[in-house]
Every structure is written in C-alpha cells, then in structure tokens.
C-alpha cells in the first residue's frame, strides 16, 4: 500500500452497491405487483383443506403466479415430506403414499 493510500484510505464506492440492490429488489417487487389479490386467500384455503388430512405447517405451501411468454401458470407447491397423516385416516390413505414417495 502506498503512503498516499495509507494517509488517505480510499472510500468504498457505495453507489454501485446501492444500484445493484435496487435493481434486485425492484425486479422482485415489479413481478409481484401485478399479482391478483386472491393469491393470499387461495393459499390460506388450500392450507386449510390439506391440513384436514395431514399435519402441515404454514410455510409448507407456496402459491405463485408465473408468466412465461404467452402462457400464465398457477403453480402450487405443497411440501408434505414427513407430514404425518391426521388420526382417523387409514393406512390406505392417499397421503401416506404421497408422503413416502416425495422423500
């Protein structure tokens, strides 16, 4: 390190960091801005229905609306790996099988 840099340490160029952070957060927010308002309640109701059959945590379901080119898609991800069937449901329950397969 030169004596000049030692005496006057260069300050980091934080503006570039600000720009990058803004680009990322705005790309994300713009994508969700146009999402219809029903998504949160759809997610809640799906969670309630699935929850009637298996033990499921709030963060085990994700509902996203995607768009690639001309086609829009509604993607529903329900993670049931390790989910325990609720009492009263027989061994033959569909969910037992699904849980085993998804491991």
């Amino acid at each position: 390190m030169s004596l000049f840099n030692f005496l006057f340490p260069p300050r980091p160029k934080t503006a570039a960091i600000a720009k990058e952070r803004l680009k990322i957060v705005l790309a994300h927010e713009r994508a969700s801005r146009d999402a219809p308002d029903f998504l949160p309640s759809l997610q809640k109701e799906l969670l309630a229905v699935v929850g009637r059959y298996v033990h499921i945590a709030d963060d085990m379901i994700r509902v996203t609306l995607g768009k690639t080119g001309e086609t829009s898609s509604l993607e529903i991800n329900i993670e049931i790996d390790g989910a325990k069937p609720k009492d009263g449901l027989g061994k033959s329950s569909l969910f037992t099988g699904a849980a085993a397969k998804s491991g």
Partner: peptide, 16 residues
C-alpha cells in the same frame, strides 16, 4: 458525491 461514487447518479436512477 456522485463523482466520488458515494451517491447513485442521475443516469442510474433514470435507468432503474
């Protein structure tokens, strides 16, 4: 401050 890289420039804000 823009010249020192401490503040986002007008071009950056317009672009974003």
């Amino acid at each position: 401050r823009v010249a020192r890289g401490e503040m986002v420039s007008v071009d950056d804000v317009s672009e974003i």
